[in-house]
Design a protein around this nucleic acid. Sequence first.
DNA 1: ACGAGGGGGGTTTTT
DNA 2: CCCCCCTCGT
Length: 775
Amino acid sequence: MGFLDELNDVQRAAVEQIDGPVMIIAGPGSGKTRVLTYRIAHLIQQGIDPFRILALTFTNKASAEMRERITAIVGNEARNLYMGTFHSVFAKILRMEAQKLGFPNNFTIYDTTDAKSLIKSIIKEEGLNDKLYKPNIVYNRISDAKNNLITAKAYNKNIDRIAEDECSGRPKIKDLYAKYVRRCYLAGAMDFDDLILKMYELLARFPEVLYKYQHRFSHLMIDEFQDTNFAQYAIVKKFAAVHENICVVGDDAQSIYAFRGATIKNILDFETDYADLKVFKLEQNYRSVKYIVNAANNVISHNQDQFKKTIWTENIDGQKIKVVKAPSERDEARLVANSIFEQKVREYKKNEDFAILYRTNAQSRALEESLRKLNIPYRIYGGLSFYQRKEIKDFIAYLRLTTNTNDEEALKRIINYPTRGIGNTTVEKLIVAANQNDCSIWQIMENIHLVKLASRTQNIIKNFVLMINSFKAQLADKSAYDLATFIGKHTGIVGELFKDKTIEGISRYENLQELLNGIKEFTEAPQPEYEEDELAPENNLSAYLQQISLLTDLDEKDDDPDKVKLMTIHAAKGLEFPSVFVVGLEENLFPSAMSMNTREDIEEERRLFYVAITRAKENLMITSANMRYKFGSLIYCQDSRFLDEIGDENIEYIGKKPSVNNTDSDFDFDTFDEPTVTYDVSSKKTYKKSPPPSVKPLSPPANLKRMKEVANSAGINKATNLNINIGATVEHQKFEKGKVLHLEGQGNNQIATIMFEKHGQKKIILKFAKLQVIS
DNA sequence: ACGAGGGGGGTTTTT
DNA sequence: CCCCCCTCGT
């Protein structure tokens, strides 16, 4: 058992404690994954059947990586391990047992888009005000209820929740929840949260099912325990109730998913739920240099809610953390790209050694551009997953409908794609009929003669039903690949994409080919020989469809891994890189403006910052920008409060030290895009989109503060009602005087085009897009 | 029924 | 800036 010698004392003790409840609190870089994998390997070597070990993770990537590492130690036996994400493991079990709950075994998994679209149409059907009942809000309410094991029925009786909804002016949410659940049921569909909720329901309602899995899984391991929600923990507890061999691994300081129901309370509860609990604290950091570890400790010490632990390291001091303030978003991006370029040359680093982390996905744009300019290969994670792209989703909708004709969202997606003359009005009629009969839309379509419709439309629908049924009939004897190819040809989708020779069209066509290859690979690859196990992976079409709905773009492989990685901090959790850039350290961005209401909000943001900086091994650069575009208009940004928490002793400031009161604007006007609307003084013409090259527009002014001054001097009333008069004289720091030339829009969205003079030249035009004056 | 074009409204984070 | 929805002209 040589591999155990690679562990330190605490790690080894945690690995060897195989019986009873165990909690491992693992600081960043403390060898958590190693402990987890060795622990499982150790269990197997102790004679525990891998078949009886259940290991739950949060990402497919984490579980794939662990399986690989375990295989390296114990060999092929690892394939029998029961390991995966909560969602994928539960989906597999539900696939077995779905009929007990009244669902088909090949139920559809609705992704967030499907779910929101269904909610949206229910809101519309109910005739509710969609400004008040936004699908997003309703979806979140339902999701939150499900995460707390509150069914639609229980919601109706839940005084607190109903009061909350009434307070926010949305008392109908309880009805929407019930309707939504019914529609999912009729469609044979579960959303992400259902995979958890239904799993619980299955265990709670069917003692024999509970018995089966309680006895089957003799050893449980839960990774990222701080990210579990109430429902997930409730299920895990049920699984573990017989053997009580449950090991949870987590770090309260890295809990960053409260917004989706995760609660640190689970860690606290775990201590009380299992009295004879053994706790191990992994506090030695093997990942980062001292400056970074110290900075991380400084930052997290500002949080009230935390367990006591001291992260320490024996690593070298390393380089100090570089903190830079850039004038604009673009300069920030340029600075990052330049630094990568420089480090590559000086320190012989590879592209894959770098990661750029940000708070929101939208921030990737500027970074992309700057990397492209320097020919640095990069990959963005967290955009759309391959399977979320329009052309792929459309095609998959056919496959979904073929395996489960009740799938309402798939049906709505393709009933008129390619266009076949079934418009919105017809679809609405179908939905009304389905609601009246409490059945799926498909069932209405199968009996379309009972619905009042023009005979032409009736025929189109009959043909559509015939077509889908003909696909369905081939499910049994054709391979999934052949069937998919047939569907592509028969519906004309492939032909249509093939005709499109634009760059996007070609890429769409290629994507579709890639999808078909993926189906072939999945469904026709020889299955490894598993032990006789009802939970062994299947490789039919519906299993494929269920699997891909749980994939994210983080799971997609890249043929050339040597690329700079761009991702949100959330996506970076569990990863490490030699050199890390954390960008956009501005108040209202990071911490996010949406998360500054309560102390808990701020503390979660701070934990996020903690996660960000502890991804770095050697080099860490943190940047902020003075100005940033928002909705196409410029806003002035203050530095993030977190910058003050790193500790000056760990920082090397590049340029000026940022501070909250910094109002400098060494502003480089050339860094801005041309305005989208331009007024040409000489010709007195307004150009939308692109003005002729003879018109040289100038971008917005240096910062919002200046904008405000300019606006004030132009006689703008503050806040809501803006009034700039054409002809008003305004001032600007870099120019002598300006005149308001052109106005568009109203109120807060007023756009003023202003011309400034410089050295007698009148060519300069300035535009305020969606000018918002802060009072 | 359906595509084009204008107007209005919106940005956290994700399985 | 980008996306969705509504309108309008086939």
